[in-house]
Design a protein around this nucleic acid. Structure first.
Lengths: 220, 220
DNA sequence: TATAAAGCATACCAATTGGTATGTACGAGA
DNA sequence: TCTCGTACATACCAATTGGTATGCTTTATA
């Protein structure tokens, strides 16, 4: 019935399986349960069933459900976004090329399960931001990190003459993050990779539009 | 504690207060509770407390919680999206002008509560799409309606020479919907209208980029 | 090897959940 | 006036929830 028990079927895989330890296993199982059900509806019994760990162990490592949720955000989701979106961008000379590359490669790597569950950040943001400040400040930290990394990239691109002079790095970065989140949302509802590709192409075309002309010609 | 009891403090106001009737009151209260807590965590007791209606009345009008949720999507949220985004767009000669106008006017009308709770469509999409097919098909219908109205607009704009010839209406429409959803998501987490404006400006700049040049000049 | 603490396991608990069974008030139609 | 269906109201219920109290091992340390 629940096909998410397997540890490695989806892309939003945050940790290595090996050597998690009890705490890590709980954290990982909680992450999956939350990604799937949301935080409030995430059942501790389900998490325990996933792992085979007992309630005593859970409450030995975490004082309560909320703190377990916080730990999932801090240690699992945050790290995943950093490794998937922030770090890789630093590798590229031109952030426009980097983002295009990231869009395409993650699009290729996505399974249907990834599409169905969508971005774990958005799941928690939509559910918990209005009702729990602890979640909200943690989530905003991750979004800001992501957003800032793109902003920095475009500041550099501006200096290097890789983008049109009239763009504002902050605004463009906001656009990119928002569009990617929105794209994953649309694909999730439609349960369709095509929606993701469609929006990915739109975003790539947008990026080509703000690329500096001489740079555009140089590349061809 | 719960400051959402008042009926008219926020923009996502779907119905008129007057003459709701018992069923309408339940529906409205359920909509607000769901918008705030999500569907699964929406408490029937809370909904009853909001309205003063008893459980007997609720179960007289709705067979169960799920069907109540479906009714909220079909009758409240769907109608709201239609009246706020789909219908108004038809009024404009140029869809680009229309969308810019819609972005600006809704930005002006948004209260902090609107920002905090975000788009009710996204709330339900993120929570329910993966776990309840009934919700998913209803939500997809609304997204498609919205998306299609923009696509139609750009098909017309293409014919009228209002946009660049190399754009694909479907792709552009996807971009716009995704970006708006993503913008509301970002603003919700940050609890900041500024984030909304920032992303709104980005989207407007994007729209100006795909506007046809002679049309761009003509307007100034 | 003695001891303390960390790492779990079992059993239990109050509170809340969605849902139901039964009863009642009331207006329309025959 | 009798009846029948609509529109509620009250009281109750099993199941699940997060959380706790109390135990037992194992491991590190002195």
């Amino acid at each position: 019935m629940n096909n998410l028990t397997d540890k490695n079927i989806y892309w939003w895989r945050p940790l290595d399986d090996r050597e998690l330890g009890t705490r890590g296993e709980i954290l990982f199982a909680a992450y999956k349960e939350i990604h799937w059900q949301g935080f409030q509806s995430a059942s501790l019994s389900n998490i325990l069933a996933r792992t085979g760990v007992t309630k005593g162990a859970l409450y030995h490592h975490f004082p309560n459900k909320t703190e377990l949720g916080y730990a999932v955000v801090d240690e699992v989701i945050s790290e995943h976004i950093r490794l998937s979106f922030v770090e890789p961008l630093l590798e590229f000379e031109n952030p426009i090329d980097g983002i295009i590359e990231l869009i395409q490669s993650s699009g290729d790597a996505f399974s249907m399960t990834d599409v169905e569950l969508g971005c774990p950040l958005t799941v928690l943001a939509q559910e918990m931001a209005p009702i729990d400040e602890g979640f909200r400040i943690r989530l905003i930290k991750i979004y800001d990190l992501w957003h800032q990394s793109i902003t920095d990239g475009f500041h550099l691109a501006l200096k290097n003459g890789q983008v049109r002079d009239d763009i504002d790095p902050d605004t463009v970065a906001m656009m990119i993050v928002a569009t990617m989140e929105g794209a994953m949302n649309a694909a999730k509802v439609a349960q369709s990779l095509d929606k993701l590709y469609l929006c990915g192409n739109g975003l790539i075309q947008y990026l080509e539009l703000i690329r500096k002309k001489q740079d555009k010609d140089k590349r061809i």
